[in-house]
């Protein structure tokens, strides 16, 4: 049952990523150069809607939350390494699979690079990664835990702020006068 759910979620996610051109590495590069912000605005909209929905739903039904631990050093170092690879390839671990489905050859190279990266990581885990990730580990904490506020209130506030920011931000900061497209 979970496998079918995951498969259907994947199909929907893949189609949405393709339509918003997040599987186009040129589009990712334009977003990271801050010339076109459409993918960043897409992500922020997704987060705003998702956060408000899941925490309102959590008031009336059990949810399968799975918060990742905040080990500050490892999460930040991992993010910095990820960002370099994200800009260089124009892909993330999911969009290269979508790109491969679209028929993009470079997406297949990014995917294979990822598989080799997973092998390198696995071999280095015990010696390098496990000690790094033991540093400054605060466990599975949320903004609501930090602020001492009800999660639903924080989720609604975050949703409103994110939606206000994406509405205010131009989609094409490089070309402001030509009307907002895609």
């Amino acid at each position: 049952m979970d496998r079918m759910t995951a498969l259907f979620v994947g199909v929907a996610m893949g189609a949405l990523i393709q339509r918003v051109q997040a599987s186009n590495p040129g589009m990712i590069a334009r977003n990271l150069r801050l010339e076109n912000l459409s993918v960043i605005k897409f992500m922020a909209t997704t987060i705003a809607v998702g956060a408000m929905l899941v925490y309102v739903m959590s008031l009336v039904m059990p949810m399968h939350f799975d918060v990742k631990p905040t080990y500050v050093v490892g999460v930040l170092v991992g993010g910095l390494v990820f960002g370099v690879g994200f800009a260089l390839s124009g892909y993330c671990p999911g969009t290269c699979v979508v790109g491969a489905g679209e028929g993009r050859k470079d997406a297949v190279f990014a995917f294979v690079g990822g598989v080799v990266g997973a092998l390198a990581f696995t071999l280095a885990f015990t010696a390098v990664i496990a000690p790094l990730n033991a540093l400054a580990d605060f466990g599975k904490i949320t903004l609501a835990d930090m602020l001492g506020l009800p999660a639903v209130a924080v989720a609604l506030a975050l949703g409103v702020v994110f939606l206000a920011v994406v509405k205010w931000l131009p989609t094409n900061p490089g070309r402001p006068a030509l009307g907002e497209e895609s």
Partner: peptide, 16 residues
Amino acid sequence: AFLGGFLIIVGARIAG
């Protein structure tokens, strides 16, 4: 694409 693909998975797995 290959080198970037390598880095995104190493980075993602470090961060979880």
